[in-house]
Simulated assay, not measured.
Amino acid sequence: MPLIKTKYKAPAFFRNAHISSIYAATLRKVDFSFICQNRIELSDGDFLDLERSFYSPQNNKIIILLHGLAGNANRPYMLGMAKKFKAKGWDVASMNFRSCSGEMNRLYRSYHAGAIEDLEAIIAHLQRENKYSEIGLVGFSLGGNLMMKYLGEQNNIPSEIKSAVAISTPCDLGASLKELDKTHNFLYSKRFIKNLKKELQLRQTHFPSEISKEEITQCNSLLAIDELYTSKAHGFKNASDYYKKCSCIGFLPNIKIPTLLLNAKNDSFLSPNSYPVELAKNSKFLHLEIPKHGGHVGFIQHKNAYYQEERTLEFITQERSRILESIK
């Protein structure tokens, strides 16, 4: 597919990447709440919590939302997307990755950017429950990487999955981590490190034989955390092995459903590999849109809805209409 010409025009004040990213993450308020929470028991003895919202008991379409690093189902960007789809007649299932719902998971492992088995478990659960005829996937940042890895790695994804959108997604994990380590991203990386170390300290109290307080204290970078915990706890040799095997960039050519990648040109989290221009030009399924502004999940407009929400709904609705037209 050719590159998509974006329609997004950032308000003047929000053309600064840091202002739009920080405002969207910390100051945005969304008037929406989920109806209930479902706990999903996993085959390895662990659990995941889903936040749910239903349009009607007989609904046949659902959108599944995946959050970013150190996020959860109730972050403003998740609520904004859920609100947009609910208003247009979709059921919504918003994932909390393992340990992200306010209660630590049972196992030493938690979540990571390539844990497609958890997404598979959620999809299977939803289909056993309601047999939706149409499923849409939306992933933000780390969740976008996980989602696109799933779509490109699995040969037989459920036919009910019709389209997907990835927003502000680091397609090359190692390269994007190097971007986060740069001076202009100091505040972001410091916040991520603080939150992740807090989670590790809690995990240490439950699994003292697996990790020590001293090891956690010595972690002063995201790379160090991935070396100490993320890679080892999830079966990778080291951080480099984790980044190589879980970056979605290697799986994008294999995606076989319409998928939109929406990455702002001024997103300071992303490396050049997160803008796969040539790949998109030669793909039937990967659509790439690169607005000039928007920062990291900060596509702010002069209205309550953000551009990423309107664009995601538009893309998924258009693909739905095209599919329905083709089977008439």
Rank of each mutant, 00 (worst) to 15 (best):
L180H: 06
S274H: 00
C100D: 05
I161M: 02
I40M: 08
A121M: 06
E153S: 15
L288P: 02
K265Q: 06
L324Q: 13
Y242W: 05
N263H: 08
E51Q: 11
R322A: 12
K232I: 11
S209R: 14
I167K: 01
G89N: 09
E289P: 04
K281P: 02
I63C: 10
I257S: 05
I122S: 02
K84A: 15
R39Y: 08
S99R: 00
K182E: 02
K292S: 13
G295L: 01
N273P: 09
T6V: 08
L173E: 06
K9I: 15
A10D: 08
S247I: 03
F192G: 04
A115I: 14
S133Q: 14
L119R: 02
N254R: 11
G294A: 04
H296C: 00
E278C: 06
G294P: 04
P272Y: 08
V30N: 13
I193E: 06
S53E: 07
N16E: 05
V297I: 09
T317L: 14
L126A: 09
A24E: 05
L252N: 08
Q154P: 15
D46Q: 06
S43E: 11
K213D: 11
R106F: 08
E309G: 08
K197E: 07
K190I: 00
F285P: 09
A113H: 08
P272T: 06
F32D: 13
R98Q: 00
I300L: 14
N263I: 05
A264N: 05
I135Q: 02
I193Q: 07
E129K: 08
A113N: 10
I257K: 07
I40F: 08
S101M: 01
P253F: 06
G80T: 03
S99C: 04
S56F: 00
R322E: 10
E210R: 12
R28S: 01
N60F: 04
G143R: 05
K190G: 01
K88P: 15
H125A: 12
Y132S: 01
S159Y: 11
